[in-house]
Design a protein around this nucleic acid. Structure first.
Lengths: 158, 158
DNA sequence: GCTCTCGTACTCGGATATTCTGTGTCCGAGTGTTCGAGG
DNA sequence: CCTCGAACACTCGGACACAGAATATCCGAGTACGAGAGC
């Protein structure tokens, strides 16, 4: 899986902790975790295209959340960065070669693809069930001082 | 996901339909689906290392199943080819940069990694619940003539 | 005729190229601010 | 003093290199079979 997923999730949580109104630049978000700024910018662009973030150019510009965390699921972020297609792609090799069989392409369904698809569905179901707000809540329970520390660091204009 | 997973699953089912005793060469298995023989051989080698297949060199050599299909799960095959590590890898970026916090590396658990890990667990649980024998049964229900056709083609020594 | 031995053909196994997606970087388009001139 | 305008600085956005892994291929190690010579 793309490494940018981790970056995007952390950045979304940071944006929420900073405050809903403030727009933060990609460079600043990247500096907080020592990430390559231009590349993080690329990932955030994908979130903008997916409607998760809103971007603004120019001075005082940057990124901010398009909606509250409780309306953003892990599935949304993963789909925005990885695309909608599932991990296992059935290339229908059973239809090629001597084993093609007499079916003229109207094969009902590949049993293997079906089984893999069920597993993929379980994965997506679990991702869709988890909102970023629930993740934030867990994170705050583990590190209650994190939100304030983040808010203070990002308020620092240095 | 690696494309070889699909090839390996189909090959395992073909091996089961051919019969438990017969050893089939990688070239023959590849020809049945018009796959690159040497590359399929590489994938089957991984299954041998995982204990799913047994290989034999020389004339009359080839691959055969190490155990019955009902004792092989989709999880076994995927792990053999993709490795045991999960798709989402947490690189602990929260521990880097100004946001590192005072914890000396003994952070309890990344909430994001935990949430992604739960989804990955659901995926693996579903894969582990499906045996290749169940997949075979579904496949036979959809194409009852497939086993006999496969057996006959592979029996052809041409 | 039977047995032992050597050669051969065939297979897996790992080392070796090639392509493709992910990773990282750079410069141009767009925008809000700010400084200055004019009324 | 207030208003208007233009230049500027800053940000996103997409186009442009680089790297690592997936994909594909090739040659060597090992083995079972079979032919041939010897007993």
């Amino acid at each position: 899986m793309n490494e940018g997923v981790e970056w995007a999730l952390h950045s979304c949580l940071n944006l929420a902790w900073i405050g809903p109104g403030r727009a933060v630049t990609a460079a600043r978000l990247a500096a907080y975790h020592e990430l390559p700024a231009a590349y993080l910018n690329k990932q955030l662009q994908a979130l903008v295209r997916a409607g998760i973030l809103i971007s603004a150019s120019g001075p005082k510009g940057g990124f901010r959340l398009a909606r509250d965390l409780d309306r953003i699921t892990l599935m949304d972020v993963v789909t925005a960065l990885e695309g909608p297609e599932e991990a296992f792609r059935c290339t229908e090799i059973r239809q090629r070669g001597p084993g093609a069989g007499p079916t003229g392409g109207r094969a009902p369904e590949c049993a293997i693809a079906g089984a893999m698809g069920r597993a993929d569905l379980a994965w997506r179901r679990e991702l869709a069930a988890q909102t970023l707000d629930a993740v934030r809540e867990r994170a705050e329970r583990q590190a209650p001082d994190a939100p304030d520390r983040i808010r203070r660091w990002f308020a620092d204009v240095t």
